[in-house]
Computed example of a mutant assay.
Amino acid sequence: MENPVKAKEDLQEILNQREYQIYYEDNRNFLEIWWDNIKAWFRDLLADWLSGFEPSNGFADTLLIILIGVVFLLAIFGIFLVLRSVKRKKALQEHQPFQSLNEMEWSVERHLKEAEKQEQAENYSLATRHQFLAVLLYFHERQWLQAHVWKTNWDYFAELQRKDKQRAEAFYELARMFDEAVYGKRKIEQKEYQNYREKALKWLGETDEKEIKEI
């Protein structure tokens, strides 16, 4: 009989050959190893949370995929909100709508009267400005926001958003066109201004354009 030690060494040498070792090698790539480790961790976590319950591999894997999907969607939604906020802040330029304290002392009716005057002169950009200031002062009178000379339209939008998101959205649309007309130097056409005036007057409550008193 051959030497048992020699036979064992020969067998080990055979097993060390490539064609045998390949069956023992882990051929998974980094992502597969990472994913398998995550699944194993999650199955252990479920077993700890649900005392006495041994989740099957299929159940744990499905639940894990669902949770990852939910987290992914929430992350996408969060990114969308951040990007929209940045875009809106850029649209509402860092300028104060009131250029002087004197303009804040004007009444809503006086700004509307000035808007009407500029409309008749076909100066629609300036008419847009006074329509917007009338709305801004009206919101101030209703205590929906606090108007100050140093505040920007972004400040007003953020203030309104904390109280009434629907009103804030309407204000944003008016403020965006105001900034484009006044600071963006965009020429406002007659039809565009008329649509703007209609939207603005909807927020002026009982203030009727036809009842503006002579200043």
Rank of each mutant, 00 (worst) to 15 (best):
M104T: 01
I66Y: 13
S51H: 15
E211Q: 10
K185S: 14
N57S: 15
L31Y: 13
K151A: 02
S51E: 15
Q120V: 13
V70I: 14
E209F: 12
Q161C: 06
Q120D: 12
W203Q: 10
D26M: 04
E169H: 07
M177P: 07
G205L: 04
D61G: 10
I188Y: 07
L160F: 01
I68K: 08
L83Y: 11
E94S: 13
E105I: 00
Y172A: 04
L145T: 02
R176E: 13
W144G: 04
Q143H: 03
D61E: 15
W41V: 11
E119W: 06
K185C: 12
H130D: 09
Y156S: 02
D208R: 04
M104P: 01
I212F: 05
E189Y: 07
W150V: 12
E206M: 06
E54S: 14
R28G: 11
R88C: 05
P55N: 05
R176D: 13
W106Y: 05
K191A: 13
H148L: 06
L73I: 14
E116H: 09
N16M: 03
D61A: 10
K151W: 00
V182Q: 15
L31N: 14
K213L: 08
V71M: 12
E159C: 02
N29M: 06
Y23M: 04
Q143Y: 01
I22Q: 11
E13Q: 06
Q161N: 12
